[in-house]
Design a protein around this nucleic acid. Sequence first.
DNA 1: GCTCCGATTGTTAGCGCTACCAGAAGGGGC
DNA 2: GCCCCTTCTGGTAGCGCTAACAATCGGAGC
Lengths: 343, 343
Amino acid sequence: MTSSADDGRARTRPAVLDDVAELAGVSAMTVSRALNAPDRVRPETRARVLAAVSELGYRPNPAARQLVTGRSGVLGVVSFDTTLYGPASTLYAIEQAARQNDYVVNVASLAALNRRSIGEGVERLRAQSVDGIVVVAPHESAADGLRHLSPGLPLVAVDAGDDIPVPVVMVDQRGGAVRATRHLLSLGHETVWHLSGPPDWIDARGRVEGWRSVLEAEGRPVPEVAAGDWSAYSGYRLGKRLADDPSVTAVFAANDQMTLGVLRALREAGRRVPEDVSVVGFDDVPEAAYFWPPLTTVRQDFGEVGRHAFRLLIDRIQGAEEGGPRIVEPELVVRESSGPAPC
Amino acid sequence: MTSSADDGRARTRPAVLDDVAELAGVSAMTVSRALNAPDRVRPETRARVLAAVSELGYRPNPAARQLVTGRSGVLGVVSFDTTLYGPASTLYAIEQAARQNDYVVNVASLAALNRRSIGEGVERLRAQSVDGIVVVAPHESAADGLRHLSPGLPLVAVDAGDDIPVPVVMVDQRGGAVRATRHLLSLGHETVWHLSGPPDWIDARGRVEGWRSVLEAEGRPVPEVAAGDWSAYSGYRLGKRLADDPSVTAVFAANDQMTLGVLRALREAGRRVPEDVSVVGFDDVPEAAYFWPPLTTVRQDFGEVGRHAFRLLIDRIQGAEEGGPRIVEPELVVRESSGPAPC
DNA sequence: GCTCCGATTGTTAGCGCTACCAGAAGGGGC
DNA sequence: GCCCCTTCTGGTAGCGCTAACAATCGGAGC
């Protein structure tokens, strides 16, 4: 009865728990329970409460709840350049998984990539009291940054190398590169040239290692590695050099964008793919099947990576022990850019 | 003095405002001011406070602050599939702008696109009490969803059409399509075929309109529009049909991915680009310059879009009047996929 | 009939911070 | 010397919620 005035003045301020309690004729605590622990309240009571909730359009105030429970229901994702296909896909998968588990996701995209920026990203999220953080930054500076973080916040890293003190989800870059290189050798090529990503990126390194290990194991010549920056432009620039060398018959480039540049360089030099030169990429971006020729490449399942990262983080938040790294195996997708070595 | 025990037990719980106050020998209120309104505190006092803050590693509790101020410092972004280049770039720009203004960004990626999912995305963010929301979902269902939202939360839409009750940032899709179409006509082509995006997407519609308006104004035949789904595959499939029709000499596709598919279809049919057929895309994704041939396309400045959206949202949050829509003009980038009509 | 138990609801206190109002201290004007 | 005004600092209360305990009630068990 005392609130009848409220009805008159229409809804001037949003409803709070007490308003619901009053309307339902119960205590605030009961409303709280009806919402958070339904089976600790008699069904009729709960029905009355829910009716009041919906009549008033009540929304729980997360700040108030967090203040007392200490949990926010927010996860943070720190990532380098979420414009790139890999990070964007990983972020997306994390976000989907989070939603299904009633978490929401805060992002901190890094414009630069160095130890400081990682730390800043983490701090920025921590200042919002997220419950945990996924760091997606497969760069040596990230590994470095992670080693110097103040502890106390559940944290998971993606592709950050295995020598860091946090649980990690990794794509087996090495294995992917091994598959790509073996594939080319099995087609009869004498050896394989590699255009790598930036050497300070963890996954670029893994791909170089995998490629090299196969050549060495097979006793093949190991050509010098040229490093690009993941961009199609760098692939084009480095590809031009390879195109001029008639002994080059097989190229493995560190990602699909670079490969696109290589394809263009080869074409401009009049070398046919795959008749004269075979080309293999990495990632399997959605467009790769429509490159010309359709690209043989190594598919990374970023969705899987994101889901693992989420799971791992939740486990950490709930206090589980730190397990070993979760490894996601990439898969060779053979299309038409690779073929038998020319005679 | 009363806290000397704390030092002994090492840091068992995180420092709070009172701890800082005690260490600095001031009241909690003064600490709060030193941190939030530095010029309302004597410099020496502030220095003492800051020293105490850093000695204790104090971090303000955002939940507590929000509870009393009513503001969270969090912005929400609702977007469809942040894996796509456009949404990802817009999100990225918003995030960068937000960071520079001490906001953080909470994402809700939509897996499906319909009125309900938009509403759910907004509700999910609102339940976290974000200070405002940007909806990046250039789809008619978004416009629809936005019309049915409960009010009271600052909201800005990106590319959502101009008939909705929220401020909006738009790329002038029509203008971009006009430029692309005029460019092709100016090269001597009799008319231009269009492969559109899904017709329920606002920007797909704008591009169709722009294209059609030029043809009609110039009195050219208006070929039937075939609608794809933005994917390279759909471009390929529809492109095959065009490739079989020798009267087709100029194609404008609704985005760069679809254009990639078209290029492949043309090549498979033995039609040369640009000698036999000219092709123009839309977006200017980073790879477009490395397609074969390098793609003439219409560049959208997603960074600009994101920055505008952020600005607009902040203005709304601070209670500014709703201005007209902000329009971002796209720009034609001429490369080598378009050339003179064959004689 | 009385005790005891579980199921249900209520009461109290406090999470960490800032708005609001007071009070104290210092400086200028007469 | 006194008053007023500005500058700085402190006390009090309360934001909206839930943890922890207390209270109540109906019925089972004897």
